[in-house]
Design a protein around this nucleic acid. Structure first.
Length: 112
DNA sequence: CGCCTGACGTTGC
DNA sequence: AGCAACGCCAGGC
């Protein structure tokens, strides 16, 4: 068939796009929500492409530790922290504070 | 067509 | 508790 862009990226974009301001999520949650257990890497991979998407707040997506692992992929390594901080998410040393508080679980918030 | 890399997660030591 | 290795899947070369 034709490799017209795998829906994989789109699926991730949709979920990430639904993340409300002041809230963050992790790759594993999105991956699990999409139905892929060990697809956390794929989510991050999709985020890389999402970097070109303005509607995809990739800065709201962090790893299971709440660390801004993808900050290095942004224009500036501080932009991710700045954006989160401006949205109400306390980020110290590239790490999200109160991660479990600001954590946005798609399976719960979307009432799956 | 095959090998390597990659914004992760989990388990083992 | 911190570090290392493995596993998974897809894209790029």
């Amino acid at each position: 068939m034709k490799p017209e862009k795998p829906n994989y990226f789109d699926l991730v974009y949709q979920v990430v796009r639904l993340i409300p301001s002041g809230r963050v999520t992790n790759y594993g949650a999105i991956a699990h929500y999409l139905g892929i257990k060990s697809g956390a890497r794929m989510v991050g991979y999709a985020m890389n492409a999402a970097h070109t998407m303005v509607d995809v707040p990739a800065h709201r997506v962090v790893n299971s530790q709440g660390l801004l692992t993808g900050k290095g992929h942004f224009s500036t390594p501080t932009e991710m922290q700045e954006l989160l901080g401006k949205e109400g998410v306390n980020v110290v040393k590239d790490k999200v504070q109160n991660f479990e508080k600001v954590f946005w679980n798609p399976e719960v918030e979307l009432a799956l």
